[in-house]
Design a protein around this nucleic acid. Structure first.
Length: 549
RNA sequence: GGCCCCGUAGUUCAACGGAUAGAACACAAGAUUGCGGAUCUUGUAAUCCAAGUUCGAUUCUUGGCGGGGUCACCA
């Protein structure tokens, strides 16, 4: 890598001057005119050492470096020359693994995300978790990790009873077994909304639903069982359809009902040590170990395991299922952050070797610029509705619709809420997924046209001029590495949009008909490299790269 | 109230302790044009406040102010 070479160069220069510094920081200046790499060592050494160091560096520059300059308050800037860029184009085209790194070399990492509950609608929040999770999974794969994608789903609990209540009370409205799978699932979701509302406003219904919940739990009512089995299958199958559209394929499906067993076993084993009884419930007083945490109930006074217990069981199951698991990542909304810390603390007292391998990544909500997110009844905007709506605006192209939504989510760092603006998300120019897809298709079409005219890339030719795109292309592996280190796909999204803009403005200045210029062998090689990097970048975001648009 | 996260142009987002805080949309002006539409060029415009650390702070620390999450039997 070129950075290492430059760092070594600086080190040698410093040694010759009798200077010393702990670590050399090398960065890309914000402005390309300020060089390709820059170091601040002189600033930290002080006493206008910049000139001296630069002189020393200039004594023997390697072939890749054009010149070294001192600028600003004492930065030393390195300018790479056309031989370097010629070579990097070559590397991009030759090396299938371009962009990959060895950060997690052969380590096993499980990423849990999406987590929609059977019997409930797949809402836009699931879309967000999915987009982030899938992208992180792919970035980790590029870092050499063996990634296992996991989905954790609540197959029992009050929400199921609420849905079944709706299905029992209004079968003609919600129980549509002859409909398409998507519609069946859609109306089961509606039944849930109906049940949830009844549970809140009607004490009679609440009693009935609670009763049903118990029956579901011990499977004592055959009729209810049939209804459950049908509903479970229909919603789970419908989810699969959505995963296909989103480009996700899970390796593991964990069901909440199964996790309770192992969780409760752990609780029993550690009762009196970690957990204690209080008011008939089993609780964990996390504040005893960490003053910023709080108490949480793990088993209710009714004897039922709570989510905390199941989460405990789930974590253990993950380490059992995948031997030698190096890291277990869970992606959820921000609201789960606090209690997850408590669960992690509890686990650290039981199996510290597992607790240290948990990583919880949280994100905010999707909000809409043009409407309210949801009513208090939980009748939310579903994932399909949103995809469908965007699709209608993109000439029926699902790939573009999904790309638009995913990019809108991934272009900013996780943590905060995102504001989804439909018009902006599909803008073919501007800061959008379709812009990247269009840009990719455009580069591809240049290549297709060239092939038709029997023109071929030749990366042994030298660039006539080094453009901004080339100055960005070779940075791709660095960007991927940073995204992997920080678990932040938005670094990639932001990089790609810069790259695409640079490329489009470069090609935009050239008249397409002027074949002599635009189809010169070098520029074709350059366009190929661009298409390749952009294609890889889109893959890392989980966005389809269309050959034509 | 305790704990956690967040406060950047009008809006939505960038900026690994560095150089003139960078884009997109919106807005304004000009060019072009067979529409008050489309396109191109240019421009206006921001770090919540106050201290501290540092050669240098949007970034780190402390205190305010403002927003969100969470704080025992839902997930």
């Amino acid at each position: 890598m070129i950075q290492e070479k430059i760092k070594k160069l600086i080190q040698d220069a410093l040694k010759n001057l009798g200077l010393e510094i702990k670590e050399i920081f090398l960065e890309h200046p914000v402005d390309l005119r300020m060089g390709d790499y820059s170091t601040n060592v002189a600033l930290r050494l002080g006493e206008n050492s910049a000139q001296k160091i630069a002189e020393e560096l200039n004594k023997n520059l390697p072939t890749e470096v054009e010149k070294v300059e001192v600028a600003g308050p004492g930065f030393i800037n390195f300018y790479l020359n056309k031989y370097f860029f010629q070579d990097s184009i070559k590397k991009i085209l030759d090396d299938e693994g371009f962009g990959k790194n060895q950060l997690h070399n052969n380590k096993k990492i499980m990423v849990e995300y999406t987590d929609p509950n059977p019997f409930k609608p797949f809402h836009v929040g699931h879309l967000m978790t999915n987009a982030i999770g899938e992208s992180i999974a792919r970035v980790l794969e590029y870092s050499g990790a063996k990634v296992f994608r996991a989905n954790y789903q609540g197959d029992i609990g009050l929400h199921v009873a609420k849905a079944l209540y709706g299905l029992v009370k209004k079968p003609e409205e919600y129980r549509l077994k002859n409909e398409t799978l998507q519609n069946q699932a859609f109306f089961i979701g509606k039944a849930y909304v109906y049940g949830a509302e009844a549970y809140q406003i009607d004490p009679e219904a609440k009693k009935e639903i609670d009763e049903m919940n118990k029956k579901i739990y011990n499977r004592s009512d055959p009729e209810l069982n049939d209804l459950y089995d049908w509903g479970f299958e229909a919603t789970m199958e419908a989810f699969e359809e959505i995963y296909k559209i989103l480009g996700t394929k899970f390796d593991y499906y964990f069901l909440e009902s199964k996790m309770a067993i192992l969780g409760e076993k752990l609780i029993r084993e550690n009762l009196g040590k970690v957990f204690e009884e209080s008011k008939n419930a089993i609780i964990f007083k996390a504040e005893k170990y960490e003053p910023t945490l709080h108490t949480r109930v793990f088993v209710t006074s009714e004897g039922l395991p709570t989510y905390e217990t199941k989460e405990l069981g789930l974590t253990e199951v993950k380490f059992e299922e995948v031997g030698d698991l190096h890291l277990s990542i869970v992606i959820t909304g921000n609201e789960q952050k606090e209690y997850m810390k408590v669960v992690a603390k509890a686990l650290s007292l039981i199996h510290p070797e597992h607790a240290s391998k948990m990583l919880h990544i949280t994100h905010g909500l999707i909000r809409f610029s043009d409407r309210k997110m949801s009513s208090r009844t939980g009748d939310v905007v579903t994932g399909e509705t949103l995809i469908e709506e965007v699709k209608n605006k993109t000439k029926g192209n699902v790939e573009v619709a999904v790309g638009a939504i995913k990019y809108a989510i991934l272009k900013q760092s996780t943590r905060g809420d995102i504001i989804f603006d439909l018009e902006k998300s599909i803008s073919p120019e501007g800061d959008s997924g379709p812009y990247l897809q269009y840009s990719y298709a455009r580069a591809k079409s240049v290549l297709v046209k060239a092939t038709k005219e029997n023109l071929f890339p030749n990366f042994n030719e030298l660039p006539a001029e080094v453009t901004e795109t080339e100055k960005l292309l070779y940075r791709f592996p660095e960007v991927v590495l940073r995204a992997a280190e920080e678990y932040e796909p938005h670094h990639i999204a932001n990089y790609l949009i810069d790259l695409a803009r640079a490329f489009n403005s470069y090609y935009g200045e050239t008249k397409i008909l002027d074949t002599k210029d635009i189809y010169s062998p070098y520029r074709l090689a350059f366009a190929s490299a661009y298409a390749k990097v952009l294609g890889k970048g889109l893959h890392l975001l989980g966005i389809e790269a269309p050959e034509r648009m």
